[in-house]
Design a protein around this nucleic acid. Structure first.
Lengths: 121, 121
DNA sequence: ACTTGACTTGGAGGGGACTCCAGGGAGTAT
DNA sequence: ATACTCCCTGGAGTCCCCTCCAAGTCAAGT
């Protein structure tokens, strides 16, 4: 698959895909003889994983570390696990912040509904 | 309360508090004759609200708009409600992204636990 | 052969949200 | 009165994460 196709498949721009590869959160993508990127299934898997993690706010730096451990081979499994556990903790903390914020938003919205009449779209 | 005390109470730096006021997500804080900020309960309420919203990832721009509507008076209640509803929708979308990411992290972590033995801290 | 168009690189530019700093003032302690 | 500490402002700097660009290469179409 070309970078364009992958970008459309996952909703990331080609620039972002190249950037992800450049900083190393996606391992080097296979190339055609001409030097053009030719994403295989593994590469797409990385793209999808990183899109997912980024959309949840996981930092590039943490993803670089994960990817780098991955590319260093099996000996790093334990380190990768620790990293993932740490990211999970951070993620859960952020979700808790969001839950609190959502509660507040809901209370505020209810307040305004009581104030302006119950008409809802 | 001084800016320092407020900063300690809410875990934001004085610089951040001044920044929030400067961009307008917190309405002008009362001052002493000397010009020094003297946060009252209302001002603290704004700080706390904005800290909560920002920690959930609500954009400064949206908060500026909310605060600005608020300061324009009662006529803007409907607009404020719409704004809050929109922010709630965005927040829920982000939480859904995070839920998906959390699922994936959990599956990956389980995978590593199966791999490296079940020893857990 | 030549144009077209998508791809390549390295590097610069941009947006958001702070964060830091210089230069100056005010209130308090000794 | 002098030192100390905290505060003020305006503006510059920083960090993160892209996003855009110039200059060049390659493959396919006419």
């Amino acid at each position: 698959m070309t970078i364009k196709e992958v970008s459309e498949k996952y909703g990331l721009t080609p620039d972002t895909l190249r950037y992800y590869e450049r900083v190393g959160i996606i391992p080097p993508v296979p190339r055609k003889k001409s030097g053009v990127r030719d994403y295989d299934e593994a590469a797409c898997g990385w793209v999808e994983l990183m899109k997912c993690m980024r959309s949840a706010g996981v930092r590039i730096e943490a993803l670089i570390e994960y990817s780098s451990l991955f590319q260093q081979g099996d000996g790093t499994a334990e380190a990768r696990k620790e990293l993932l556990i740490d990211q999970r903790r951070q993620l859960m903390e952020r979700m808790e912040d969001m839950r609190r914020s959502l509660d507040r938003l809901n209370r505020k919205i209810e307040h305004y509904e009581r104030l302006t009449g119950k008409a809802e779209s």
